[in-house]
Design a protein around this nucleic acid. Sequence first.
DNA 1: ACAAAAGTGTTCGATATACACCCATGA
DNA 2: TCATGGGTGTATATCGAACACTTTTGT
Lengths: 246, 246
Amino acid sequence: MTARKLMQNISVDCVILGFDSEQLNVILVDRTLILPNTSEVVFSDLTLTGYHIYEDEDLDSAAARIVKDLTGLENLPLKQFYSFGALDRLHHPNDQLWLEHCGDVFSDRVVTIGYYSLLPSTNVNFIQKGRNAAWYPVTSAKGLAYDHDFVVEKAIEHLRYKFWHEPIGFELLPVKFTLSQMQKLYEAILGTQFDKRNFRKKVSQMDYVVPLKEKQIGVAHKPAQLFMFSCDVYEKTRKERFDFFV
Amino acid sequence: MTARKLMQNISVDCVILGFDSEQLNVILVDRTLILPNTSEVVFSDLTLTGYHIYEDEDLDSAAARIVKDLTGLENLPLKQFYSFGALDRLHHPNDQLWLEHCGDVFSDRVVTIGYYSLLPSTNVNFIQKGRNAAWYPVTSAKGLAYDHDFVVEKAIEHLRYKFWHEPIGFELLPVKFTLSQMQKLYEAILGTQFDKRNFRKKVSQMDYVVPLKEKQIGVAHKPAQLFMFSCDVYEKTRKERFDFFV
DNA sequence: ACAAAAGTGTTCGATATACACCCATGA
DNA sequence: TCATGGGTGTATATCGAACACTTTTGT
């Protein structure tokens, strides 16, 4: 087996978003530069799950591989949303130091392809090798490495756009969810409040949000009915509509 | 002035779409491989307006430069929509021959960033150096170089999605347009028919489609009132809406 | 006068919005 | 019994869809 070659100028960065019934979170990994001789910690910050792609690997596979390498997570639905190629995106002093010392020889001109993925941020088991991956609230994900603040911002903008125009995001909820959880998710992402009755009326028209014969258990209040999303029904009943507005 | 270096693995491809009151068109440029010694034409096909980017140029500037180089068109509103990195995207025999003979030494692993732009396809003056650029109906733009069939397809899919959800695409119309032209545009892109009265009722609620005190002249029928799009009013009155559907 | 496209209104069913109270459970 | 979040209905205004005829111009 011959050694695979990494591409010097092309990377993939994944914005893995989770929801915990309260807020949006994102997976970030530590980037700590320790000088090998003195063991001095030069700096420590956070990056998205990203890395360079191999020459013999397409973009989607690269995204999946990199996420798996850094977090242990597999089979995430990763979707490309935008690419980033600003000239100065690796020009922060930390980035330059990292490039010098990280072991691989990369260009300082790297175009990165942005991917995102959605999942419930509860009950996620990270299996990490070396660098530490964890959830961080997106609101506090500032001062990231490279241009990753901007990448996160763009991902959320993209997501918000889609949320306004199609009923998506069920991936962010547990498989079985309550209507209140669903409403909170929409409110968190769109930054709005919805009337409970009207929201539920809207949802009750969505055949693909199917009520289960189950209720919450162990909650200190009236247990809510559980629902699940049916992808099948969704694909079958989805219609396009001339829905833009004055 | 030192020579600028092209990046081996990164290109930009622009899907420049135009509308001529009847159909969608796309700008394509000839790619003709002529052997220098025998003058034999090995093959001739068509590509999008695309090329490799320079090391010292960001993606947006590269797109603008490349379009200008190939067509002479400047100040087009170019927007990034997707990136393409399939392993076999340059593996058609013509592409391989082209790579061998085109003069520059490029990798056969190139990731390309897709951009699109919209403009009326009437009254466009191409200023071309060498390769020939022209409008082609998108319906007949098949068998293009590289993966450009796919790139065009993705661009149109992207555009159609946006058309369904926001009132855009005025760039595809002349500055002064009639409501019939606007309706035909929507019908062409969305592949639907709209009722004339309902369409006009909808449009009359859009404050940013402003009636002018002018009519068509020289037409062999009742001349239509002209309208224009006001970007200002649009930005001021635009609202987000929970508009997804059952 | 005729051909060709412009322009216009009403009815009906569906949807969006606003709004307030009772219910089931665990502690 | 109380605290907590779950669950429900109605009235009004607006919007979307369906539908056919008259007007203005150039030839």
